[in-house]
Design a protein around this nucleic acid. Structure first.
Length: 571
RNA sequence: CGGGGCGUAGCGCAGUCUGGUAGCGCACUUGACUGGGGGUCAAGUGGUCGCAGGUUCAAAUCCUGUCGCCCCGACCA
């Protein structure tokens, strides 16, 4: 491809709305352009990169025994009503009507459609297992799309669905996908972790997210520094939980203290000159319609997902101001567990406190010297706080380290969540009808492109892992078209193309600086510069974008050297 | 959905408070010089100032409405 032909509109300045580095660089380097909030055009460079990722995904999926299909983006409401998700999914599901007034939606995922495919034609255990996947645009009407391709509304996703006769088979399918995912992300040159994840309201027992480690990631994850335990903080358990404090001797009644207008932990701490870990944070929860108190130490954060699991609840949310007032008799900011007839869910750390400051359940009032277990009792005492850097590992004696990650893949063991209500069944060896055991496996293909940049860039631009680069090589002649240098560069370009190398020839009449700047911005992994300095000695410069190292190579050896570098890189 | 911000040339911005010829940098076009990290000089092209209504002799600027975009939070996985 000649640079004068390639539609790669580079910009010196990033548009104002681009904040995260991957978004800025993708726009500046001419890979993408925004069409609407969370909706992007992929320009030639962007599409080439996405195609590279898709190729790797296909090879590994096919290798793991999955078969590619392509399902429609527009799906009829009936299927979603069968699974119950037409009601449940909420506004993220973009619904539309056709000219006859029938309801449809733009697929945010394809469980319903795949189940329909499989139940239509698979009847016997002899036809199982089967694993079907597609690479296709998904649409989710996100409340707030953000960060360019990292959280768009329309995006490319690989989604695979496995169907097995029993749990053992489904587990094998799950493990095969897990292994394929590790190969995919490794081949993409990403630094990633597989982490234990929340299964959300999809249910099921097994779920792993594949997280690319990056400061700008949306997800917080913790990883043990001595064993393999890695989990999303949403469900990360905490080890070494303390036992309850055993009060000895007399425990005087709590002392009321006036705290006018001091609602937050910081305000109360400053006012009473006590550290945050001497406070109990009391949160009013609405749990399946009834109120609960949740207690964590003042320096900790409540984990709503852990609280929901601890109580086996379906719906659990922080109470609104009104409910807080009716439960505690005080405005928000002054809630406490003492003297209330509401069930209490307390973190073990709270019950281990010898004395604490709590809210006084009256405006401008707190209590000092509250002894957990004496002045109030816990209905349940379980780990409900958010894991933090430095916490003990739940599996060993190690400690948890905090990271941020970008979720690029997710594997779920679904069970019969969809097959059962939608009648996706087969006849087993005894002739008995049974629902299939399902798994689903997603990869954010366009998100990988963004995540790879978050992880691989410098002040000049993108530093692609070679397998993802839209082009592997750029040939930059520093000369005029009629000069011998130009001709030599052009013939090298032809030679590389003939070798099957994806190469760009920078035939623009620009100054060297502009060419170098664009080459680095776009992120060509290998850059060949042919100029007067080296040409007379029969050499050219071969620059490695990632390391910045430049080596002099004899003109005759260039094509072979490039081929060697490409085949040396992981494919 | 709550809070904040922004819509002026392809991109980045000034001008808006205090109404009076729509500007700057980059990019783009032409020419000359130049030629190893975004060059210099000269001459140019390009804008219904997001949209609609109102006030006014006069609106980018004031008023009302509306649409779009971004950020934080909540939400979602």
């Amino acid at each position: 491809m000649r640079m004068t032909v390639l539609h790669a509109p580079t910009l010196r300045d990033a548009p104002r709305e681009a904040e995260v580095v991957s978004h800025q660089l993708l726009v500046r380097a001419g890979y993408i352009r925004q069409l609407a909030a969370g909706i992007y055009n992929l320009l030639p460079l962007g599409l080439r990169t996405v195609s590279r990722i898709a190729r790797i995904v296909r090879e590994e999926m096919d290798g793991a025994g999955a078969q590619e299909v392509l399902m429609p983006a527009v799906q009829p409401a009936e299927l979603w009503q069968e699974s119950g998700r037409w009601q449940k999914y909420g506004p993220e599901l973009l619904r539309l009507k056709d000219r006859k007034g029938n309801d449809f939606c733009l697929g945010p995922t394809h469980e319903e459609v795949i189940v329909d495919i499989v139940r239509s034609d698979i009847r016997s255990y002899r036809q199982l297992p089967v694993n079907l996947y597609q690479i296709q645009a998904k649409f989710r009407d996100e409340l707030r799309p953000r960060a360019g391709l990292m959280r768009g509304r329309e995006f490319m996703m690989k989604d695979a669905y496995s169907f097995d006769v029993d749990e053992a088979g489904a587990t094998r399918s799950y493990e095969a996908m897990y292994a394929a995912y590790e190969r995919i992300f490794t081949r993409c040159g990403l630094d990633f972790r597989a982490v234990e994840a929340d299964t959300g309201n999809i249910g099921g027992s097994l779920s792993h997210e594949f997280q690319v480690l990056a400061e700008t990631g949306e997800d917080a994850i913790v990883s043990c520094d001595s064993c393999q335990y890695t989990a999303n903080v949403e469900l990360a358990a905490i080890g070494g939980l303390p036992g309850p404090w055993q009060a000895t001797g007399a425990t005087p009644a709590p002392e009321p203290v006036s705290t006018p207008g001091k609602r937050t932990i910081e305000e109360v701490c400053a006012f009473l000159s006590v550290p945050p870990d001497a406070l109990v944070k009391t949160l009013v929860l609405e749990v399946d319609g009834s109120p609960w108190l949740a207690l964590v130490r003042g320096d900790r954060e409540l984990n709503l997902i852990k609280a929901r699991k601890a109580l086996g609840a379906t719906e659990l949310a922080l109470a609104g101001d009104e409910l807080v007032r009716s439960v505690t008799g005080a405005p928000t900011g002054f809630a406490g567990p003492v003297g209330l007839e509401v069930p209490v869910l307390a973190d073990p750390e709270v019950m281990a406190m010898p004395a604490a400051v709590t809210g006084g359940n009256a405006a401008d009032l707190h209590l000092r010297g509250v002894v957990p277990g004496v002045h109030f009792a816990a209905t349940r005492s379980v780990d409900i706080r958010m894991a933090e850097d430095g916490d003990r590992c739940p599996r060993c004696d190690g400690h948890l380290r905090a990271f941020r990650g970008i979720e690029v893949g997710h594997v779920f063991y679904l069970g019969t969540r969809y097959s059962e209500p939608m009648g996706c069944t087969f006849l087993d060896q005894e002739g008995k009808e049974r629902p299939m055991e399902m798994g689903c496996y997603g990869i954010g293909v366009t998100r990988i492109m963004a995540a790879a940049i978050e992880q691989n860039h410098d002040e000049r631009g993108i530093v692609w892992p070679l397998p993802l680069a839209p082009f592997q090589v750029i040939v930059i002649p520093l000369a005029k078209p009629e000069e011998p240098i130009w001709e030599a560069a052009e013939s090298l370009y032809d030679q590389l193309r003939a070798q099957g190398v994806d190469v760009v020839f920078d035939d623009r009449r620009d100054r060297p600086g502009a060419k170098f700047a664009d080459a680095d911005l776009i992120g060509f992994p290998l850059q060949i510069v042919m100029g007067k300095r080296t040409f007379d000695a029969g050499q050219a410069e071969l620059k490695d974008r990632a390391s910045g190292e430049t080596t002099l190579v004899a003109l005759d050896d260039l094509a072979a050297e490039v081929a060697a570098r490409i085949s040396a890189a992981p494919q």
